[in-house]
């Protein structure tokens, strides 16, 4: 197949950036999207130019490093998949493909398609953990977690931190990312002592990083490679309201699934 690629090139955060056109022959259907970019880069290097910079690592859809917006969709065509899982069979011979970085005020562009997502790390730092020193711990079966609760927590915990939710949201909101972590930890019995503080501090950090606010478009849920549901945003909202207005710190959270 032959592809016409329009790739966003930007030398650094301060540069204005713009699209660069490339034509690539010999694209095969079984290629992954990133392998297609690798192939392009090999040719660019051979021609003595600067290859396209893009993040990728595990290349099996779990590390969350890859971060392209392909034809206006984060992680491109395909449902519940990351850019590295997109295969070129999703395109036709002669297709024009527009490739951009994830865009958000909170994700400054490092170079070309590579962005800085450390804002997510700082949201986690604000409270996305359960404090536990490493050392002897109680027997895990001493506190039982009903199967549906464990499954619900796991649904939320599947987040890979790729940032597609932010990239897809017309408001650049990070509610799905934050909501998933608040819900994952807030659902489990061990997460109860810090539940209310966590909801407050993580939401505050999310705002401080400059992410937008949710208007319930539900684009994030659709773009999420792990299909994380926006019901976790609702859950975060509820926890946050309780935490902010009812001061429940002195009471432990109730263990309850949806």
């Amino acid at each position: 197949m032959r592809m016409i690629l329009h790739i966003w090139r930007q030398s650094g955060p301060e540069d204005k950036g713009g699209f660069q056109r490339h034509e690539l022959d010999g694209v095969e259907e079984d290629m992954s999207f990133l392998e297609m970019l690798d192939t392009l880069n090999e040719r660019i290097i051979a021609a003595g130019d600067d290859p396209v910079t893009f993040d990728s690592d595990c290349r099996e859809g779990i590390c969350g490093a890859c971060s392209c917006v392909i034809n206006g969709r984060p992680h491109g065509p395909g449902h519940k998949s990351t850019t590295c899982q997109v295969r070129m069979r999703a395109f036709k011979d002669g297709d024009e493909i527009w490739i951009e970085p994830f865009r958000s005020g909170a994700f400054p562009i490092v170079k070309d398609l590579m962005v800085d997502r450390t804002a997510f790390d700082r949201i986690i730092e604000a409270g996305g953990y359960i404090s536990a020193h490493s050392g002897p711990k109680p027997e895990p079966n001493a506190s039982l977690v009903p199967h549906p609760v464990a499954e619900e927590a796991m649904d939320a915990a599947e987040c890979i931190g790729c940032g597609a939710c932010v990239a897809s949201c017309p408001n650049g909101a990070a509610m799905l990312f934050t909501g998933a972590k608040v819900s994952h930890l807030g659902l489990l019995p061990q997460g109860q002592p810090e539940r209310w503080k966590r909801a407050r501090t993580m939401v505050a950090q999310m705002d401080a990083e400059g992410f937008g606010a949710c208007t319930n478009y539900a684009e994030c849920q659709d773009a999420c490679p792990k299909g994380i549901s926006i019901r976790f945003i609702g859950r975060m909202n509820r926890d946050f309201m309780k935490a902010s207005l009812c001061e429940p710190d002195t009471r432990q959270g109730q263990l309850k699934a949806h």
Binding site: V69, N71, R73, S104, G105, P170, Q221
Partner: peptide, 14 residues
């Protein structure tokens, strides 16, 4: 939060 728009944002779910 979204100072720069996409060339054409392909909205899916909204």
């Amino acid at each position: 939060a979204r100072p720069q728009r996409y060339r054409r944002h392909h909205l899916q779910a909204s």
